[in-house]
Structure formats: structure tokens, C-alpha cells
Design a protein around this nucleic acid. Structure first.
Lengths: 360, 360
DNA sequence: CCTTCGTCTTGGAACGTTCCAACAAGCGGC
DNA sequence: GCCGCTTGTTGGAACGTTCCAAGACGAAGG
């Protein structure tokens, strides 16, 4: 216990006091070799208790912080999962990221997010950055990139697609069963007594095609193929409003509308209001995604919920399967949606309802 | 031009065909030294055109991708700005990040995001990760961390606070002039003819205190101190609704309410509806933040806009000042908000209005 | 023909870790 | 009194870059 008479100035010239302290500074102060410091800090059982304490104390005193860059270089592994988010403004992805982070954390990985503002070029730049940083795997959430680029990324690192289907063996994917979700929406409306049910679709948006065909299938199955009507729209507020405008311009007002996502549904709500149609008295509306928007009391939208956290968690698990278990076959997971009934749907006028009829 | 008879198998044993190609593989294929490859790829003017082409071609053929990890290690600089986002679910930050990315990109930096789910502990973990990755600077967006931890991060890397004020010289900050914003809201309502203006506040949320005192000051300046009323709330939908409930329970209905943020304002809208008060016929409502929510046609909320992109861009610029110019004094930038008039405000009943009076 | 000077090009050191083979010391067994 | 084993500890090599001092090679100047 001779105290602080450490080896200290072993190197006469430069005293190593510049920049962040390294493992060597810790070693010097603790009076051991750099290797032992490395061992001790990583909690190896091969280190004598006494030395471990000395190392920990020295590290603490110096404010030592491991250099992940150096570590990654030698280990050839970063323990980082790169997440390319096509759109930060879409709340849908926020919860997916929650799932990603939780699952990654529990496997000793960190998630780093880079975004691509819905532009293919920016998305590729984001991915390129993550690849150069040598992230161990990549999760692409809602990319609008051409498939060729996705495949080229997958050539150097495991890639999982979220909210975009993949058929390739080298790229896994996690998607929602949008077709089934659309059927749920129609089934719900039919069960309430609606027959004249229209659809405002999402154009070329992710999942829009499946939702459209799910709608058409369900209508057919209920013997309503003849009244089925699809108005073109987009996944935006304006798209939903424009869809309603077009719908009402071309035909009699339906008693219910299934809109391709929540944001567009809110646009539809507003457009219906403009056209003097009350929701839900005159027209019932169903959205899709169950975003925070739908849950607002002021909007209170019946919608289809996607298990977003689960989607994110699954994406990480798929990545880890390739990373840790060395899987090579492609896996394409499809998760099931769920109907969430709120205030924008009710039986059409003239149909009684089991519960207390609305007073007004 | 003897073609492809490259030096190739200089190393007899291992043929270097494993993992990603390195600068050495490129050098071998191009028949030059690793140093020249490094120079050529970075666009040095000291490289003869002929060799540059050879290097570029070899790199292309091998699918070479620079290893940012190795580069960072030797340069002791990553060219990465770490962004700790307290809450991915808050759309307010999405646009701040847009500003950050745009500005960072134009300075040859990339932004990497890590999130902290509004929990101090998670936030610190996120920051620690970014520090271990040796990001060149840190932007903390809306942190709920204790100041001591912020300061300890600032000891090793430049730190800029967004949406949280700093007085410390070692930590810069970019905030909005919330006090001025609140005054704008009150001024607008007073100009419309309102006198009985209440406030639902944001509790301990970021900026809530300034907004509250801005409201009180403005009321005083207009000689309305006696009718000023503050109902406690939070920055959530429920908080806004609860604030209205409390307000109406304790006093006569005001003709206008200024709510501390948009989300709470939407909650207030819903609560007023519940209480049978029409907006804006009976009560005018002003929110704060001008989130996408406020702009929805169906909500159409008058609100105070913060220059979010500008806030993000400014944060990056502050960081670069420390990084490139070596500034050491603290800078605390305060940006000005702007009133956005939409459909939830109008003159109180009985007051005429210059424009066409609403027909109903 | 030898210097000197520019223009290119090169090998070696460094960055801060981890990994590995090797070593030191103690200890029991023969 | 040496062997082998276990338990700790160590220095050197490696990871893939960048940086730097120095080398190669002509061309120009004496």
C-alpha cells in the first residue's frame, strides 16, 4: 500500500496528456500491462481481484472511456445495427424504432438511426454511411430505393426490410398482412349493416396495393362486388380529401368509406365535413395504421392497428439470426393486424343498433 | 499495357479473399502502393492521371468501400455528429433533425441519431454510446438529464442543447423565445377583441415556464391582469383536456384559451366540445409549436410557429464553430417565433369583424 | 557528367484496441 | 529436485487507414 507512487513517467518525453485517456494511461496508473487492463475492463474472471480493483480505480480517476472505434477495428465487429428510416415525420416508424431499440439492447447491440427524407438518393447516402461505419447489420424501414441497391447492400451485410416485402433470399423482411387488415375493415362495416362501402386508396404507397385488393376481395366475398368503388388517393391528408372529392363527384354518397391510412382518413374526414356529410351519422370512416393521430379524442378514428413494436423487434431478431446463427435462407415474416373500433363507425341511418341508439 | 498481369500473389499463403476488400487489395490489383490508393481515392492532385484511373477502376471492380472505422482511428476524428433525441414520437424534433442533417451534410459531416425515450437513464446510455463511438460533437435535443451529466459529456466533446436553455460556457444552446411567443398569442386574441383569456399551461415541460410568464406579462401589459387565469396542464392531450375541465369547474367560461402546446390544445378542443362549447364560435383556442397536427384541415389550429429547421441548422453551426474555429466561450442562441392564424380563433360573440361575418 | 530540383510514389509508423502465444510463479505429486 | 498443471500476467502482432519522411526518376542547369 505504498499509495500513489505509480510508475508514471516511464516515458520521459511526451507525458501522454492529450486527448482522451487510453488503456495505456490506465495501465500506467494502475501499474499493470495494457493487456490486463483490457481483460479487467471486460470483466474477465482471469484477473486477480486486487488488480481488478486497481484497474477500475485508475480508469475511474482518469475518466477513461473505451474507444469503440479501436475496438471495432480489431474485432471486425461494431455491435451496432444501422437503421435507415425513410421518413422521420411518419409516426408509424417511431414505434417501430422503439421495438428495434428494445430488442437490440437486450442483445447487447445499439441501434443507430440515419434518415433518408423519402428520397432514393438520400436514402442511399444514409445506407452508404452506415456501411462505411461497418454496422453489423442494416434495417431499412420503408425504403423507396430500387431493389438493385438493396441487394447490393445485402451483399456485404445482413439486411432486413420493414414495411416493404422482399422475395430475395439474401434480404429478410417484416411486413404486416395488409390484405387481411383491409378485409377486417370491410367485415366490420358489413357487420354494422353497411353495404355501400367505398375505398380511397393509397396510390403507390407501401402496402397500398395489398389494402386495395384486400378491400376488393372482401367486397366480393360479401356479394358486394357490384357496389365496390375505389377512388385514387395517396398516403397524405390531401390525398384522402381528393379521394373523397372524386368519389362524391362521380356517384351517390356511400354510407361508409375505408381509407388507406390514418392521415388520408383525416383528410377524408375534413372533406366529408366540407360536403356537409356528418361522420359517423351520414358516413362511417375507417382508417389504417392506428397512429397516434387516430387515437386523438378529437378525431377518434376507427382503424386497423399494426403491431409496430413487434415489427421492429422481429426485424432485429431476423438480423441476429443471420449474425449469430449464420442463417442464409431468406425469411419473410408477415404479422397480423387488429381492428380498433372508435367513434367514426356506426350502423348506417335507418338500421337500429343493439346498444343505446345515439340521441342525435 | 501488358494488361492484367498484376503483382497479385505477392503473398503466397493467404490470398486475402475474406471479408471486405481493403485498400491493400485495391493497391495490389492496380499495381501501386497502398499509399497511392489512399491518395487517389481522396482526390489528391499529386497523383498522375493514369494511376488515378487504374486505382479507381480497381476499386470499382472489387467493390471497395472505405472503412470509416480505420480512418477515424488514425485521424482521431469521425466526421460524425451524434444526435440524442429525447423523444422520437414528438414530431417537433423531426423537423429539427431535418435542419441538422441539411446543415451537417453541407459541412461534410453526417448525423447519427440515438434516442432516449424521455428517460434520463436511457438518455445517458444513448449519449455514452455516442461518446464511445467518438462522435466529433453532440446535439442533445430536449434532454431531461440532470445538468451534471450534460456537463460531464461536454468535458470531452462539444455539446449543443436544443430546446433546453444553458448558462454554462462549455455548453451552447439553441432555444425559442417562448416568452415572446406567448405574448404573440395573447396579443392576437386581444386584437380580435378578447379580454377574458385563460391559459392552460405545460407543467414542467420544456419551455412551459416561459410560456406561462409570457402569458402573464402580456395580460398585465394589456391591463388584463385581473382576469388572467392559469390552469395546470401538461404537454399531452390529456393534460390539455384536464386543464379545460379544471378551468370550467372553477370559473365562468373564458372567451379564449391559450394552451401551452398543440397536442394539449387538441385535447382542449375535444374537452370544450364535450362541455358544449363550440370552437371558435364560443371559445377561441391558440396552441403552440405549429406541429403537423395543427395544420390538419380537420383541426386547423391557430398556433405559434417555431423555426424548427433553423433551430437544427443553428445547433450544427454552433458545433462547427467549436470544432473548426476552436471557440471556447458559450453561445446561447434564442430564435423568434411567429404567429400562424388558422380557424380556431375569431372575435368573441357580439363583436363584429371586418371580414365577412361567419354565416352560422 | 554531376547536381539540383520538381513531380510522383513509397514503406513504415501510428491510432487504441483485442487476441494469442508465451512466460512467471506457485503448488502438488512423484 | 524435477515435472506438469493452474492461475495470472505479459509483450507483440494485427485490424485498415492516414501521415510523413524519404526515395525514384526525369529534366534542367552548370
Amino acid at each position: 500500500m505504498s499509495g500513489t507512487t505509480a510508475v508514471r513517467d516511464a516515458r520521459p518525453g511526451r507525458s501522454r496528456r492529450q486527448g482522451n485517456p487510453t488503456i495505456l494511461d490506465v495501465a500506467e496508473r494502475a501499474g499493470v500491462s495494457k493487456s490486463l487492463v483490457s481483460l479487467a475492463l471486460r470483466g474477465s474472471p482471469m484477473v486477480r481481484e486486487e488488480k481488478r480493483k486497481a484497474v477500475l480505480r485508475a480508469a475511474e480517476q482518469l475518466g477513461y472511456r473505451p474507444n469503440a472505434v479501436a475496438r471495432s477495428l480489431v474485432r471486425n465487429r461494431t455491435n451496432v445495427i444501422g437503421v435507415m428510416l425513410s421518413d422521420l415525420h411518419n409516426l408509424y416508424f417511431a414505434e417501430v424504432v422503439d421495438g428495434i431499440e428494445a430488442e437490440a439492447l437486450s442483445a447487447e447491440y445499439r441501434a443507430l438511426i440515419n434518415t433518408g427524407s423519402r428520397m432514393a438518393e438520400r436514402e442511399w447516402a444514409a445506407i452508404e454511411t452506415l456501411l462505411q461505419l461497418r454496422t453489423d447489420g442494416l434495417i431499412l424501414a420503408g425504403p423507396v430505393l430500387p431493389a438493385s441497391l438493396i441487394l447490393s447492400a445485402a451483399a456485404s451485410v445482413p439486411v432486413v426490410l420493414v414495411a416493404r416485402a422482399s422475395r430475395w433470399p439474401s434480404v429478410d423482411s417484416v411486413t404486416n398482412d395488409d390484405r387481411a387488415g383491409a378485409r377486417m375493415a370491410v367485415d366490420h362495416l358489413v357487420a354494422l349493416g353497411h353495404r355501400d362501402i367505398a375505398h380511397v386508396d393509397g396510390g403507390t404507397g407501401a402496402g397500398a396495393a395489398s389494402r386495395r385488393s384486400g378491400y376488393l376481395e372482401a367486397m366480393r366475398d360479401h356479394g358486394l362486388a357490384r357496389v365496390a368503388a375505389v377512388a385514387p388517393g395517396t398516403f397524405t391528408e390531401e390525398g384522402g380529401a381528393a379521394g373523397i372529392d372524386r368519389l362524391l363527384a362521380s356517384r351517390a354518397r356511400p354510407t361508409a368509406v375505408f381509407v388507406a391510412n390514418d392521415l388520408a382518413a383525416v383528410g377524408a374526414l375534413h372533406a366529408l365535413e366540407r360536403h356537409g356529410a356528418g361522420v359517423p351519422e351520414d358516413v362511417s370512416v375507417v382508417g389504417y395504421d392506428n397512429t397516434a393521430l387516430a387515437a386523438l379524442g378529437h378525431i377518434d378514428l376507427t382503424t386497423i392497428d399494426q403491431p409496430r413494436r413487434e415489427i421492429g423487434a422481429t426485424a432485429v431478431r431476423l438480423l441476429l439470426e443471420r449474425l449469430d446463427d449464420g442463417r442464409h435462407r431468406g425469411r419473410h415474416v408477415v404479422l397480423s393486424p387488429r381492428l380498433v373500433v372508435r367513434g367514426t363507425t356506426r350502423p348506417p341511418r335507418g338500421r337500429s343498433i343493439a346498444a343505446t341508439p345515439a340521441p342525435e
